[in-house]
Amino acid sequence: MDANQETQYNPYGMDEECRNCPGLCDVRERVVHGYGDVGADFVFVGEAPSAGAEETGVPFTGDDAGERFQHILGSVGLNYSLPDSDEPELDNAFLTYLTRCRHPERDPTEEEVVTCEPYLNADVRMINPEILVPVGQRALTELGAEYTTTPADELDVEDHHATTIRGRGFELAPMIHPADQTDAERDEYVDFFLDLAETDYRQTKGRRSR
């Protein structure tokens, strides 16, 4: 699957009419696939689209939490547009979710996460980032189980916020979800990420230089 380098919106052309989860197809407004730079070193993964992201079609946009998130990206040099933009100008960042559809009354089920996993796996495999950023507890739990050997009961996003966890092929850099962050936790993550960006975080994986 080749990326469309002309757009940051769903650059891999993933199925926008997906009907793999019957419990979501009739209640969702749209499928929200990944968005951003297909050559990114950093992939940010949330649990599922918010109402705002479902409206815009772009992960981590469309509401107050999305603005806080985009402000963080701007503060670390990954977003060149205003935090309230519905189509942020991202560089070296790709945004996606564990599940691509929103249920208006509940969180994703385990079955829905498993069903949607091939989309996330495809994003990660094709982008081949250096750092995975789980945004929120659910994303940390799922990515930790897939990419680290750390026991699940030790993967608390509050404990690991603004730290790195060594993974299999990637490092994880968990973030408390912006909707739940204090201003101090936001600033802590910005400072952590700026320090991380100055380190030699790139692994020896045959990646091209940026």
Rank of each mutant, 00 (worst) to 15 (best):
E110M: 09
L172A: 08
D63F: 07
R138H: 08
T141W: 13
S85A: 15
M175R: 07
V157H: 01
F44S: 04
D86C: 03
C21R: 09
D64M: 02
F60W: 03
L24E: 12
Y35T: 03
D41F: 00
V27C: 13
F192P: 14
Y12V: 02
F192A: 14
T164S: 10
V38Q: 04
R208K: 11
Y119R: 10
G169T: 06
F60S: 06
L172C: 06
E146D: 11
R19V: 14
E146T: 14
P178L: 05
R19A: 15
Q203S: 07
V190C: 11
D123A: 08
F69W: 11
T182F: 04
D2N: 13
A65W: 09
L172P: 05
N20P: 00
A179F: 00
T96N: 07
E87K: 09
R30P: 05
A93H: 02
Q8A: 13
P178C: 03
D153R: 14
V38L: 02
F192G: 13
Q5Y: 14
V135W: 01
Y35Q: 06
Y9V: 10
Y9N: 12
T148G: 10
T150C: 08
G23F: 01
T164V: 11
S50C: 05
P88Q: 09
T96E: 07
R68G: 09
I176K: 10
N121K: 15
S209G: 09
P151A: 10
N10A: 08
V27I: 12
R186N: 05
R138P: 01
M14G: 01
Y9I: 11
R125Q: 13
G39M: 02
A40C: 07
Q5E: 13
S85D: 15
G77D: 12
V157P: 02
E105L: 11
L143Y: 07
C18F: 02
R202E: 12
P104F: 03
P134W: 03
R106I: 02
D191K: 14
R210E: 15
P49F: 02
Q203R: 15
G77F: 10
A93N: 01
S81V: 12
H103G: 04
L73N: 08
D26W: 01
Y147T: 01
P88F: 04
Y189K: 09
A51D: 08
Y9T: 09
A51C: 00
D107M: 06
A65M: 11
G74T: 07
V45E: 00
T148F: 06
T115G: 07
D187L: 13
R100S: 10
Q203D: 09
N4I: 07
R100D: 05
G169A: 05
V76H: 07
M1G: 14
R30N: 07
A40V: 02
T148M: 11
D191W: 05
E87M: 02
D153W: 04
L24A: 10
E158C: 00
N128D: 15
P118F: 00
P118W: 00
N79D: 14
Q5M: 12
D180R: 14
R208Y: 06
E185S: 14
D37V: 01
D41M: 01
V157Y: 01
G136K: 05
D159F: 08
M175I: 05
P108F: 01
C18I: 07
P118G: 06
